[in-house]
Computed example of a mutant assay.
Amino acid sequence: MTIEARQAGETAKEYAYRIIKENIITLELEPGSTLNDMEISQMIGISRTPVREAIIKLKEESDIIEIFPQRGMRIALIDTDIVQEVRFLRMTLEKAMVELACDMAQEADFVWLEENLTLQEFYLKNNLIQKLLELDNALHRKLFTICRKDLIYRMSQGLSIHYDRVRNMEATAIHGHKTVEDHRNLVKAIRDKDKELAKRIMEEHLDRWLMNEQTLRNEYPQYFKS
């Protein structure tokens, strides 16, 4: 597991939740691997109770963790039906966001987006995949912020963990230049107020994992539910 420092004001439960979730998304906690709350509590330096509470929260909001009474816990295998369901949710929300952003984005927003894109291109060039994914997430969140829909974004994040895992796999196994190119084209369409083009780019962008599904299955067969 990758352990980051506890943030100011972060409760023990929030800290455990963030660390476990991030390690699931980055596949440090691999699909199908066992999960031991006592070991995690020792690794991140907090008591077992908030770790257990964080695990239960992840289980309840996304079923990303499977709990077997008296037998232990494990990280759920990748279920493509669930990934498709989450993709549908994101597609519905984010196509609506880019359409709204065409009307609502201000010059300061475009300055932020251009800075983000420049950094994405830098991290892609230097093969810093995790940094690239962080910026990818930040750009998608920014669309909700531009449209003043931050609450909707936060509400959707529980289920997104299923989709984020395959995005991480895709970025690792397949060079991410298409992702950055999509983002660049999307920002241009928003600036040009071309709503139909922006929606089409977002749809193609969120569908890329489908085009690469067999490649991912071949690369990581042990991660997928049959």
Score class of each variant (00 low, 15 high):
Trp209Cys: 09
Ile161His: 04
Val51Leu: 08
Gln120Val: 02
Glu61Ile: 14
Lys199Ser: 07
Met155Asp: 12
Leu139Thr: 11
Thr80Tyr: 01
Ile55Gly: 05
Phe68Thr: 15
Leu135Ile: 08
Leu197Cys: 05
Ile152Met: 12
Lys131Ile: 03
Asp182Gly: 07
Leu186Trp: 01
Arg154Ser: 14
Arg74Gln: 14
Ile19Asn: 03
Leu113Glu: 02
Gly176His: 01
Lys57Asp: 15
Thr49Trp: 10
Arg167Glu: 15
Asn168Leu: 00
Ile40Ala: 02
Thr118His: 13
Leu77Ser: 11
His205Glu: 01
Leu113Pro: 00
His205Asn: 05
Glu60Met: 13
Glu39Lys: 10
Gly32Arg: 05
Phe224Gly: 03
Arg141Met: 12
Phe88Met: 09
Pro69Ala: 00
Asp136Pro: 03
Met97Phe: 14
Asp103Leu: 04
Glu134His: 09
Glu219Phe: 11
Ser62Ala: 15
Tyr163Asn: 01
Asp182Ile: 00
Arg141His: 08
Lys95Ala: 01
Arg200Thr: 08
Val86Tyr: 00
Gly72Thr: 07
Ala54Trp: 05
Val98Glu: 04
Ile152Trp: 07
Ile67Arg: 12
Glu213Asp: 09
Met1Arg: 07
Ile19Asp: 07
Lys95Phe: 02
Glu30Thr: 11
Met211Gln: 13
Arg90Gly: 05
Tyr17Lys: 07
Leu27His: 07
Lys193Cys: 05
Gly9Asn: 15
Leu124Ile: 02
Ser41Gln: 07
Arg154Met: 10
Arg167Cys: 09
Ser62Gln: 10
Ser33Pro: 08
Thr2Met: 11
Asn36Val: 02
Leu210Glu: 13
Val180Asp: 10
Glu85His: 14
Tyr153Pro: 00
Gln157Asn: 13
His162Gly: 00
Asn36Thr: 04
Pro31Asn: 10
Ser33Gly: 06
Gln130Asp: 14
Ser33Phe: 03
Met91Tyr: 04
His205Ala: 02
Asp63Asn: 14
Ile174Lys: 06
Tyr220Cys: 09
Glu94Met: 09
Arg90Asp: 05
Ile174Cys: 10
Thr49Glu: 11
Arg6Phe: 06
Lys142His: 15
Arg87Thr: 13
Leu143Gly: 02
Lys131Thr: 00
